[in-house]
Design a binder for these strands. Structure first.
Lengths: 355, 355
DNA sequence: GTCAGCAATGTGACCGTTCACATTTTGGCG
DNA sequence: CGCCAAAATGTGAACGGTCACATTGCTGAC
């Protein structure tokens, strides 16, 4: 299982077979020697330089294949001064949304010839941000994608005066240059408008954690749409994205049953809400309508199937990489121009109010 | 946003301030010059060599801080011949289980001073495995964690004769040396036994995709427990892990309603099943009992809350890294000794059969 | 007072690639 | 058949660390 090196055969000082004398992994000079050319010619073959005779190219390539030679990434990075690596700074990386984006980022980066290194912020935040960024910088990443759109994380990053370009996913704060996101406000307005159109007037909003930028954006969208339709609002409840919280929040809310609909800031909390509402013996959507956000794959099979706002996490991840690479190479920023719009998916958890 | 280099001030050939003459990022020799020591002394400070006078260490450290000097990872990797990077080969990386494990792997690796590079297998499988492994090998990873426990992936990897240690997560195939997993068979037996104990005799099994090792293990556990209790079985249905499939499978199964319980190979499919069963006007658990597998965070809020088998993905990820690093450094394999056992979580989706 | 021995530091080579530049080969044309 | 530009290839020096070994300074035992 661990045969790291090419086997070696030396007999009376003469190298037998065309393997290397030493047990090292082959280098560009080994290839050169065996192919009867200079190391530089091999380098040119590797980088498909135009002025290489086809016959030479073939001969060198053959030796490369025989030796299973791979150029050393370290040596290349050293002399070129670039690592071809981008970093991802992520919180909640086990959640559906971030995980989907990360997967897409990795694919897109790989297609562009880049490597991806991820650092998580799972543990207690304070120094952890600094540590995570350090980890990435030590890896000499050429750029960073931030998928931890909490205000304090963004602030910390700006304070760190990072020396490489970075892009934040999902943040709708003014910073246009290095922020990319699905329009959360538009999505929240879609959801709210849907409830209003159905005839609801007593609508609660179960929001995400206060310092999450997207939670705040969804809240703003909710309030804006309510205001635009002259529907009075109560203060949103601040949750933590989990189904557990949704459940307990739902139980609290049901003590005073003065609403006919709830717009939840994500699908998990909506699930918890639905659980609490059913526990109370109420029917969804007859007694209470529920709208979620994200459209996780399970949402279509909740009971009842959840009306929610779909956003394309994968596309977001891809655009993010495009924007970041454009920043790195200095190209024009093509990708972020057209905004990414969320979409309302109407299922069975919403209906006109019974009263 | 992109001030890559230290600013430079030169006046009449004399370097003003203690910055570098060139716009380069500082190297170990720059630090040495400014601290009035040799580059080797700086190297020793960096690697906390014991025989360095405290005063010297302090002086060097100060220059390092002033210059914001960071050792070049590329140069270090080049001369040491090691990258301090491990690769993760993953399929379904957006799913809860794999995503949790990946996050834990990253944390554990970071704590051990390693970097993690992930390659996904999302696209069409055939050449993609080779490409993904190539990607990782080119990154010169020192080891690989495989979280794509499909038979063909494992086979492909073994065929590739990878020159670095690798560990497969979740595979219960005999290969003890580089396989680590929660005991899937035991978990499946727990779930099955639970249904049998409740009095069920007509139990279906909705399995995972055929070539997934863990799907096969759960199926084997199911069959073993059924056999041990002399309960006749029908052929398991092979699914694809998604809630959508669970839904359609459920609809098919309900055409002939000859069962009182279903053991689903994961929670998502169980959710789909429950959806289909309710659509048919049946009650869970009165008419049909359902057991899932994984205990995703949402399972507790399904309707009804899902009885399922919990496995500790995070712990699995951590152990995986421990095992891999032990393999890399040649240490004794401490971590994998005690098996990781899954746990039955009984909620409300199971009950004694009504008939 | 000298010298062994260790602590602290310095010197030069080397890792595997690319870069800038030098040199050789090739082919077309007068 | 010689000449010249362009094509093809070669040469040596970086890149920024670490390694092996050399050197210096200091302490203490005889």
């Amino acid at each position: 299982m661990r045969l790291q090196n090419v086997t070696v055969h030396i007999s009376s000082g003469v190298i037998v077979s065309n393997n290397l004398a030493t047990g090292r992994t082959p280098s560009i000079r080994d290839v050169a020697r065996l192919a009867g050319v200079s190391h530089q010619t091999v380098s040119r073959v590797l980088n498909s330089h135009p002025s290489i005779r086809e016959s030479t190219r073939l001969r060198v390539q053959q030796v490369i294949d025989e030796l299973h030679y791979r150029p050393s990434r370290a040596a290349r990075a050293l002399v070129r001064g670039q690592s071809r690596t981008i970093g991802v700074l992520s919180a909640l990386s086990a959640e559906y949304g971030p995980a989907s984006s990360i997967a897409a980022i990795q694919d897109a980066a790989r297609d562009a010839g880049y490597f991806v290194n991820t650092a998580n912020l799972s543990r207690g935040e304070p120094a952890s941000i600094q540590a995570a960024v350090d980890h990435l910088m030590y890896q000499s990443v050429e750029g960073i994608v931030v998928i931890a759109p909490q205000v304090r994380v963004i602030e910390a990053i700006e304070k760190l005066a990072i020396t490489v370009p970075y892009v934040t996913l999902q943040s709708t704060s003014g910073a246009g240059e290095h922020a990319l996101s699905v329009d959360q406000i538009a999505g929240a307005r879609l959801a709210t408008r849907h409830l209003i159109d159905l005839g609801h007037r007593n609508i609660y909003h179960l929001a995400g954690p206060q310092d999450w930028i997207e939670a705040e954006a969804r809240m703003r969208g909710f309030l804006a749409e309510m205001g635009a339709n002259d529907v009075p609002t109560t203060a949103p409840i601040l949750g933590d994205w989990t189904a557990d919280f949704g459940y307990y929040a739902g139980r609290e809310m049901l003590r005073v049953r003065d609403f006919t609909a709830i717009f939840s800031s994500n699908d998990q909390m909506a699930l918890g809400l639905m659980h609490a509402i059913r526990d109370a013996g109420l029917n969804i959507p007859r007694d209470v309508s529920i709208v979620g956000f994200d459209d996780i794959p399970e949402a279509a099979h909740f009971w009842p199937p959840l009306t929610t706002v779909r956003q394309d996490f994968a596309e977001l991840g891809r655009r993010c990489v495009a924007l970041l690479l454009a920043n790195i190479t200095g190209d024009t920023n093509d990708a972020s121009s057209t905004p990414l719009l969320p979409e309302l998916v109407v299922r069975l958890s919403t209906a006109a109010p019974a009263w």
